[in-house]
Design a protein around this nucleic acid. Structure first.
Length: 601
RNA sequence: GGCGCGGUAGUUCAAUGGAUAGAAUAGAAGUUUCCUAAACUUUAGAUUUGGGUUCGAUUCCCAGCCGUGCUACCA
């Protein structure tokens, strides 16, 4: 048996064994309710006996008493127990915590499960930008969730392919191209000093501005809104450009590649700043035809139907859904068609066991339909696809609206966070003995740590409010608070080294831990359990709160023990901090977040 | 209209169907200037409403209210 398994599992097995012995009944682990003992009661873990009453056929107190007595007598793990109402509070013996701590300490890969050869392969799609505008705050949540999800899966022994689908074709990019052609005077990222994605985004806005002006002009001549939209010269030119692109017109395609390459350079910079990356990138320009082929095959096989205007539709009424268009009357493809094509290519490329799409919750319907369509087209992976959806990010001032210009640009946001971090640290005099380079690096880590932690600590499925100012506070449930804790730990270690304090490799066995020390080890081991569990539940925010718990406990601990005193310091390596007896690993958790941890700040 | 998602202290977030619903932050009162810290202690403050299931419901079910998203030949 793996000694590293957490104490909860050991307890669970002990309880199952005890019930078998006492009541001659087999129970499975789902019937065992074990939870952390509330801090106002004595004990570490609590068994709730109510679900077991049918088996014991006794009242809650008696049942708890019997199981407690049995466990204390038969399990080396249990040092003591007490019963309050139907709750059996179990105290784990100190030596178990000490042993656990030694195991944690000796395993540099603690909490990480290496992937087996036959481990399931997860492909995770995230980010999914359009090439007509820069990334914004919503993309930041997407990227951080997607990336964290991949890291959690990897830590749980899964094979992971991180992928991105770039929406690089369609009318939107033609709008930018057209505006650039008309009014750009050959401007390039080099000539203007603008980041490529911002440059293109500016032309997209410019198109929209002129298009709106044109519509207003036409409407003032007495046309209806619809008529104006149909007669718009600009829009018709953009449509014409899309047709040329689809037919491979050399000039248009060349312009398209040039402008997209500017955007990609810009995206790469943003991704690098955010610390996210991809193993394989798909482009819709390369997948949409495959989707079209699949739809046409479906039509031929009678799975879909065609209307008189020759548009192709799927009838999903038997699934309780509506009719869904798959090919327009002019034969061009829609979003759904492209996703079908992309899915096909992906499954041709990789032996994917589970496909996960990290996409906002406004597209729940889309992925519901995609799943059904893939299934209809007899792709076996269709049914099992996972739409990992998340809520919107709002600001304290309200919702982001592109029309009202209240969209927060990702690059601007990162810059602002880093600047705020620099200012705050400088004000507190923390950067005084740093070189400018060091100060910049520290500001970068704090700024990004604040952003990442604030976004990841919230339950993904909920809408959230991002408050830049609160996120960067050195106190409270924030990234900087955790980083700061780490920096202080490092400071202690530096001082310990200067004082020539020896760090023992392991704790001596039979050592007696204080209650608080036991609590710390408990937190560490629970954290490990949750990291593992989280891989299955995809609950990143839970991990966030536990990392915070650890940091908070450390602070309290530090306070109580005054561990700077020479004889109290007993620390082994950089990952771990100790007081008299207890070490605490926190860097692993922070790595999961991709939050970098400064050594001083 | 139909469908989906959400509704917890002033605010931002927690709570596998379990004990007195936790934190943080802002507020109030007090102690302090020691650790890489304006910190520490104390205090006040919340489950949208009405039913149901259960020994027990923030959690599950039904209905209402509020918010939000989807319901495009946009992506």
């Amino acid at each position: 048996m793996n000694q590293l398994m957490n104490i909860e599992n050991i307890l669970q097995d002990a309880v199952i064994g005890g019930i078998k012995e006492l009541y001659n009944t087999d129970v499975d682990s789902s019937q065992i309710t074990l939870q952390k003992t509330k801090k106002e009661f004595k004990g570490h873990y609590t068994l709730v006996t109510f679900p077991l009453l049918k088996i014991s056929k006794k009242n809650p107190e008696q049942t708890a008493q019997e199981i407690g007595t049995y466990l204390a007598a038969h399990s080396a793990v249990i040092a003591d127990f007490n019963v309050i109402k139907g709750f059996l509070n179990l105290t784990i013996s100190s030596s178990v915590w000490a042993d656990l701590l030694n195991q944690i300490n000796q395993d540099p890969e603690f909490g990480i499960v290496a992937p087996a050869d036959d481990a399931p392969l997860y492909m995770v799609e995230y980010s999914s930008p359009n090439t007509n505008k820069p990334l914004h705050l919503g993309h930041v949540r997407n990227n951080l969730l997607g990336h964290s999800l991949c890291e959690v899966l990897k830590a749980n022994g899964k094979k992971v392919v991180k992928t991105n689908i770039v929406n690089d074709r369609g009318i939107h990019i033609c709008k930018s191209m057209l505006a650039w052609q008309k009014w750009g005077n050959g401007e390039t990222p080099e000539s203007s000093g603008k980041k490529g994605d911002h440059l293109i985004g500016d032309y997209y806005v410019l198109f929209d501005k002129n298009y709106k002006a044109e519509l207003a002009e036409l409407q003032s001549q007495g046309l209806t809104k619809e008529e104006a939209e149909n007669q718009s010269v600009l829009m018709n030119e953009a449509r014409e450009m899309l047709r040329k692109w689809e037919s491979g017109d050399e000039e248009v395609v060349t312009l398209w590649s040039t402008m997209n390459s500017w955007v990609y350079t810009g995206f790469d910079e943003t991704y690098k700043k955010l610390g996210v990356s991809f193993d394989k990138i798909y482009y819709e320009s390369q997948t949409y035809l495959a989707g079209k082929d699949e739809v046409l095959r479906g039509l031929k096989e009678g799975l879909f139907y065609q209307q008189e205007d020759s548009s192709v539709w799927a009838d999903l009424t038997s699934y309780g859904l509506d009719h869904k268009i798959l090919l327009r009357s002019d034969g061009t493809s829609v979003y759904m068609t492209q996703d079908i094509g992309t899915a096909k290519l992906r499954f041709d490329d990789y032996p994917i066991d589970t496909m996960i799409y990290v996409v906002g919750n406004e597209q729940i319907y889309h992925f519901q339909v995609l799943s059904i369509l893939l299934d209809i087209l007899s792709f076996e992976f269709g049914k099992g696809l996972v739409h990992y959806s998340y809520g919107m990010v709002e600001l304290p001032e309200g919702k982001m609206k592109s029309r009202e210009g209240t969209v927060v640009d990702a690059d601007d946001l990162v810059e602002e966070m880093v600047n705020t971090a620099r200012e705050t640290s400088a004000e507190l005099g923390k950067l005084d003995d740093c070189t400018p380079e060091e100060a910049n690096e520290i500001a970068r880590m704090i700024g990004l740590g604040a952003l990442k932690y604030f976004i990841l600590k919230v339950d993904p499925k909920k809408n959230m409010t991002f408050n830049p100012k609160e996120s960067i506070d050195f106190n409270g449930n924030t990234g900087p608070f955790i980083q700061y804790t780490h920096a202080r730990i490092k400071s202690i270690l530096r001082k310990a080294e200067i004082q020539g304090i020896e760090i023992p490799e392991t704790l001596s066995t039979g050592i007696s831990l204080s209650e608080k020390e036991e609590g710390l080890v408990q937190l560490v081991s629970e954290f490990q359990a949750i990291v593992k569990q989280a891989g299955e539940e995809y609950n990143v925010s839970l991990i966030g709160n536990y990392v915070y718990e650890l940091a908070k406990e450390y602070n309290q601990f530090y306070h109580d023990y005054q561990i700077l005193k020479e004889e109290d310091v007993a620390v082994r390596d950089f990952r771990i901090v100790l007081s008299k007896n207890v070490a605490l690993t926190i860097q692993k958790g922070m790595k999961l977040f991709g939050i970098e941890v400064p050594e001083r700040m």
